[in-house]
Design a protein around this nucleic acid. Structure first.
Length: 490
RNA sequence: GGCGGCGUAGCCAAGUGGGAAGGCGACGGUCUGCAAAACCGUUAUUCCCCGGUUCAAAUCCGGGCGCCGCCUCCA
């Protein structure tokens, strides 16, 4: 039974969609004015995993992730480069799509752009005018916060509290400083659309209210996004949507925590923004996913070389285990073994493999505890390594042990977007990334490995060790395996 | 100032009423020409501090200390 932490109630609640087996999920996507960073990666990976897990549970999920393509920052950038807003938006939509594919994210069911739904936004603003929640000043339309009784219920603060510490700019056109724009009169040089209030463009929050309604109806099952969106964005969405429809906007509100860089908040002003592209240059996408998923989605995570190196080590270990299993499958195994006659270690591995699906599910059912789920993968790998390590008897392992273990990695790994590569491709992909930071070319490494092999055949251990030491000083570590010597970056 | 969250081993990190998961590191061992990898073992009598509730608290309540986020169209 799945339980989900709901920001609205501040508690974990049993997940029960409105409509039996169907789930409507809306997640706030990106504003396309710049390259995406590791924080966007976290949010999209977290909701990608939630999407996959819900489908695994048998739900038919409609997942909507919007693209904000009309916004102050886009306009600013377009003016700076003296191009159309559309050009900026399209450029960064392309980059965003490339990044998402690289991270192995599934495509949402719908990815609507704000500019394709202006009509719905105008209609919602009109409705709010009709119902007395909104007012017009010149060409602007504002939502009147004090008309909506529940204002502050998501972010847990009252309008009085907010006014006390208000840092919002005083806008002469607003009746109350906390009121927010549904529609903005456009200035020259800005994109604009016809509306009952003259040429203008939508406010930020209205796009999500209008698009979630267009694709998923009045009440969603899950509405998600980064923690920073709780206020004001999601608070305002609730206010608008519920003001317009009289129905709850979403049953469950899910928010992911932030990514810090070396314990500092990532921000433009600190200049420590790490883009997804920069990280992908150095780490295999599954390492990034593993790193993100080894923390609970609501906790902050700290991105640092040390922490990423740790994630890499874990992934290397998993793929070494997978590689060993693949080799065994190719080399051939004993046929189905009767479980009763097996030795203790094999018995234990068998039990681990059989218990895995239940353990995995239990972890994920508890508010998507991916960190615990990954712990179970570690247990699985350790048990398997233990029985595969003995060269003499490992070919006596029962086929069904190895195949069901492999299935666990493939099937449950898929929910996390991990362990989906061929081990060779993973190891080589990561190695290629690491080589680019070193002073040595791959063929030179291979040449030195051959020389060392020759020396070892002659039992010239001194020369062999010198070559190994020489490579080591260049950051290359060697591993002698039964079928030859491989290398990796230290 | 208001609101919210966090503090678990040298480090990373689960656990939210009754066993302190898992990983990294370290140390000892098996294996190896020596290594590495892999495996085995050891590594938190105790969960920031002080009180309280309870048969029982890392977990609930009160107070303190420390860190962080939001209150700015930042995921």
């Amino acid at each position: 039974m799945l339980r989900v932490y709901n920001t609205l109630s501040g508690k974990k609640e049993v997940f029960k969609p409105l409509c039996d087996k169907k789930v409507g999920m809306y997640v706030c996507g990106v504003t396309v004015y710049d390259l995406c960073h590791i924080g966007h990666a976290r949010s999209t990976v977290v909701f990608d995993v939630i999407f996959r897990y819900l489908r695994f549970l048998g739900y038919e999920v409609t997942y909507v992730r919007n693209i904000t393509d009309v916004d102050d920052k886009i306009i600013k950038k377009a003016n700076a480069e003296d191009v159309e807003c559309e050009e900026i938006a399209n450029r960064y939509i392309r980059e965003f799509t490339t990044d998402m594919e690289a991270l192995g994210l599934e495509k949402p069911t719908h990815e609507p752009k704000a500019t394709d739904h202006i009509r719905e936004m105008i209609r919602m603003a009109e409705r709010l005018m009709e119902r007395g929640y909104a007012y017009q000043t010149d060409g602007d339309v504002f939502f009147s916060v004090e008309k909506f009784a529940g204002y502050g219920k998501l972010s847990k603060r009252s309008p009085e509290q907010m006014r006390a510490g208000a840092r919002v700019e005083i806008d002469e056109k607003k009746r109350n400083p906390l009121d927010f724009a549904l529609w903005k009169a456009s200035k020259p040089g800005e994109p604009s659309w016809d509306s009952p209030w003259g040429r203008g463009r939508p406010g930020w929050h209205i796009e999500c209210s209008a698009m979630s309604q267009a694709y998923l109806g009045n009440t969603l099952d899950i509405h998600g996004g980064g923690k920073d969106l709780i206020f004001p964005h999601h608070e305002n969405e609730i206010t608008q949507s519920e003001g317009a429809t009289g129905k709850p906007l979403s049953q469950y509100w899910v928010h992911n925590g932030f990514v810090n860089i070396n314990r500092e908040k990532m921000s433009k002003s600190l200049g420590n923004i790490l883009t997804i592209k920069e990280i992908l240059d150095r780490y295999h996408p599954e390492i990034i996913r593993f790193f993100l998923l080894s923390h609970h989605y609501r906790s902050p995570v700290d991105f640092s070389d040390r922490n990423l190196a740790e994630a890499k080590m874990s992934m290397d270990r998993f793929y070494s285990t997978l590689k060993r299993m693949d080799e065994l499958e190719v080399e051939g195994l004993a046929s189905q073994g009767g479980e009763s006659s097996l030795e203790e270690g094999v018995q234990k591995a068998f039990e681990g493999v059989k218990a895995f699906p239940e353990r995995f599910k239990e972890a994920m059912d508890n508010d998507f505890n991916t960190a615990l789920a990954l712990g179970h993968f570690h247990d699985l790998a350790r048990n398997l390594n233990a029985v595969m390590r003995d060269e003499g008897s490992r070919h006596d392992l029962p086929t069904n042990l190895v195949t069901s273990a492999r299935d666990n990695f493939r099937l449950y790994g898929n929910i996390l977007g991990l362990f989906q590569c061929h081990p060779r491709d993973y190891l080589e992909g990561q190695r290629r990334r690491e080589l680019s930071g070193l002073q040595i070319a791959e063929d030179q490494i291979n040449r030195m490995i051959r020389e060392r092999d020759e020396a070892r055949k002659q039992r010239d251990w001194k020369l062999a060790d010198e070559i190994r030491e020489s490579l080591s000083s260049m950051g290359i570590a060697l591993e002698d395996e039964p079928d030859g010597t491989t290398w990796k970056r230290k």
